[in-house]
Design a protein around this nucleic acid. Sequence first.
RNA 1: GGCCCCGUCGUCUAGCGGUCAGGAUCCAUGGUUUUCAUCCAUGUUACAGGAGUUCGAUUCUCCUCGGGGUCACCA
Length: 462
Amino acid sequence: MVVTRFAPSPTGYLHIGGLRTALFSYLWAKKNGGKFLLRIEDTDKARNSEEAAIAIVNAFEWLGLAHDGEITYQSKRDDIYAKYIQQLLDEGKAYRCYMSRDELTELRETQMANKERTMYDGRYRDFVGTPPAGAEAVIRIKAPKSGPIVVKDGVKGDITFQAEDILDDFVIARADGSPTYNFVVAVDDALMGVTEVIRGDDHLSNTPKQIVVYEALGFVIPAFYHVPMIHNSEGKKLSKRDGATDVMAYKEMGYTPAALLNFLVRLGWSHGDQEIFSMEEMIALFNPKDINKSASIYNTQKLDWLSAHYIKNMPNKELAALLEFHGLLLTSHDKKEILLDSLKERAKTLQELAELTKEVLNTPTSYDEKAVAKGFKADAAEVLNAFAAKINAADELHLPSDYHQLMEAVVQEMEIGFGKIGQPLRIALLGKLSGPGLDSVMSIIGKEETLLRIANAISANS
RNA sequence: GGCCCCGUCGUCUAGCGGUCAGGAUCCAUGGUUUUCAUCCAUGUUACAGGAGUUCGAUUCUCCUCGGGGUCACCA
């Protein structure tokens, strides 16, 4: 069975880059009928917070990416790590190193001065006898001193590192006994049964270290897929300083999970010329071997386009429910079908749709100056009064077409062009010269409100 | 600096030895629309450079250049 995982450290919100690797992991698990696990890497007590862990879980909930089984918290697994560290000690695959921090620093400085690679020199590797008085010990793993270590990567191909270039006997447990990252990652992935590790390629250079741990412990090495970074416009790794990298910020801005996920899945992955992917299609078509090798630049123009696409094609009922989050209660509005039909193809986000809706629903309190100058000429009042008279005379006005007929009638009787009534009426109804169809607007707001807006505009602008 | 990865339109990408180098987005223009948006149509823009290999390289190899990642008792 295919088992993937997402393993964030709870130092902040869920990041857009993290979400993409999580999505890839999720899709691959689902495609194979496997499991997608969530592990919270909260071993750094100084930097982690519980709120951050909750925020991450909430973000996944909003996106509808459900993890399988219980969440694994590394902070609760000290006993497990201690057991495996002890095992390595017992088997002579790890050892206590009594070197002080000062000594380590000194070693590094010497190496730097000699332009050598900074690395631990293995001085306690074969140490027997009495440790220095009062010295605290870290535990180091015996890493191979030379020879190739091959990372079989499903995205980049086989990558060969030379142990002498990159490895030393790295620390697997600190002086206080707590295990370090590369150790716990390997242990957890193995114990959780993770078969495919899909993660950012900033982890690529950690992988040889983790392979050392896998091998020392006799664990099966999983398949690796290192997905390229997402870069900011400067071409650097996307970070929290780049703004709008908090996934939940996209909810606030009015993007739907479908749009965001569709946007992210196409960043670094593609399937021919296809741009629109439903969750079902993503699951059916995704394969990590098709992930690009190169980094991509984060640019949300396409997200806007996708978002508009999804809003346009969303049933009104669903839209109305989503709009509540943006402060709009439409459930009881009797013309909400007409309202949303005429507005949903004009908005890029739900937030924008909510604002557009309010512009239609609320009586204008001011009129755009340029619009008035251009579209509310001397004869405007006369035309609007004639139109108002027709509205007053009509007893049944409901559909946009009902209002449209009255507009046509005024145009014919007064022998004027459509613009002669369209422009002033638009200013009266919306306060500006752009917006949805006037007949729809009138149908939505109704007869009384239409008359009110016409009267307001005439007194304000003539 | 060492090690590792990467390099097709501005951006996201297709391509897997022979293509007018395709699509999408953005931008521009035209059409539709009383207006704006949508929608439709059209258009501009790319194989980092240099050597090979080959009848033929965007595609394979090497070098250069450029970009990125990583080098902790952080994760």
